[in-house]
Design a protein around this nucleic acid. Structure first.
Lengths: 187, 187
DNA sequence: CAGTTAAGCGGACGAATGTCCGTTACGCTG
DNA sequence: CAGCGTAACGGACATTCGTCCGCTTAACTG
């Protein structure tokens, strides 16, 4: 039962929506809740219904905009674990997340959203799975506390998406440090 | 230059708006972003403009709904500090916050909002000040890390307002524990 | 009490969101 | 290539938000 490929016009429209959303996110400083979907549809030259048909919620749209970033964050976990102890791997991974989020503020919001909804059709972008791997390896090594799962951490990392634009440098690293230290297992 | 007292009808309308908002929040499980202001105005039997005149944003409205809770959380800090070491006082205070938030899910959202806007006319409800006192005393005692301020902690506590209804028991205490342990200063 | 002032009102209005129905046009098949 | 099925479309519509203007009325003063 092979599903038919999307129509060519739908593929083009979808790409145009994503492109317009990406530009609008840059314009709004990565503010997902400030993303005006009507304006995105207009800029993409599609009707409003078309936008919602492709992306049922704004989270779906943002997740698609940042698909590449999510993939990279997920794919970097095995290499970090291969080269570093689990806790250090976790720290380096969080630093990488900070780098992404510094430039593209919507990434954290996309991560938050993807923790609660299955926004991608495959596991390649399941950042919660990747993060869970880091936590599991850390716990197995006795360096990360048990009883915390990836969703908990994503909830906490959500704080990053709420830092005002002008306070990123003052707060972001501190937040991640507190979270990381809270995850440590001290003996 | 004494300011005139509010008119009697305005006082009544304001109280009706708050009462309707409180009921609506209970109905929606404390979801602030799901609070429909038009419905609140209608239920309160006031015009839409009247609602916005009294409460310019939904955060102002929610802050008023939970004014009593905020006062109690603020006022409990000196007593906790008088009877316990700072870190333990902080822990007990966070436990108290959890109790409030368990029953009234909008309390954390009100705290979040009040960290960024001056929503109360006095300092009696400045929860960020109260929390800062706990952090300062803890740092002075060498038990809480330095370089973290109340706003950082409030950002992190924002995770609580995003825990889905059915997962509170599974996650809330863990989140607060991670935050608290991240705030500790280990030597 | 009457007159005045301005606090406070209601709801019309435009913008934005999300839904859905009639129409269009893409892609497949014979 | 023509015809058919249906994927996909545009945009009207109702709802909600937030603003603002003309009107109402509460409160003060002489």
């Amino acid at each position: 039962m092979p599903t038919r490929a999307p129509r060519a016009d739908a593929v083009v429209n979808r790409a145009r929506i994503v492109s317009s959303a990406r530009a609008a996110l840059v314009e709004s400083g990565g503010s997902v809740e400030g993303l005006r979907l009507q304006a995105v549809a207009k800029d993409a030259q599609v009707g409003q219904g078309t936008l919602y048909r492709h992306f049922p919620t704004r989270e779906h749209l943002v997740a698609e905009v940042y698909r590449q970033e999510m993939t990279e964050l997920v794919q970097t976990v095995p290499a970090l674990l291969a080269e570093h102890p689990p806790l250090q791997a976790l720290e380096l991974w969080l630093d990488r997340l900070l780098e992404y989020a510094r430039v593209k503020r919507g990434v954290v919001a996309a991560i938050e959203a993807s923790a609660w909804q299955d926004l991608y059709a495959d596991n390649e972008h399941r950042l919660d799975h990747a993060l869970q791997t880091l936590l599991d390896e850390g716990a197995a090594a006795g360096a990360v506390r048990e009883g915390v799962d990836a969703t908990d951490v994503i909830l906490l990392l959500g704080a990053l998406s709420r830092v005002p634009e002008g306070q990123w440098d003052a707060r972001a690293h501190t937040l991640v440090t507190v979270i990381l230290d809270g995850l440590r297992r001290y003996r």
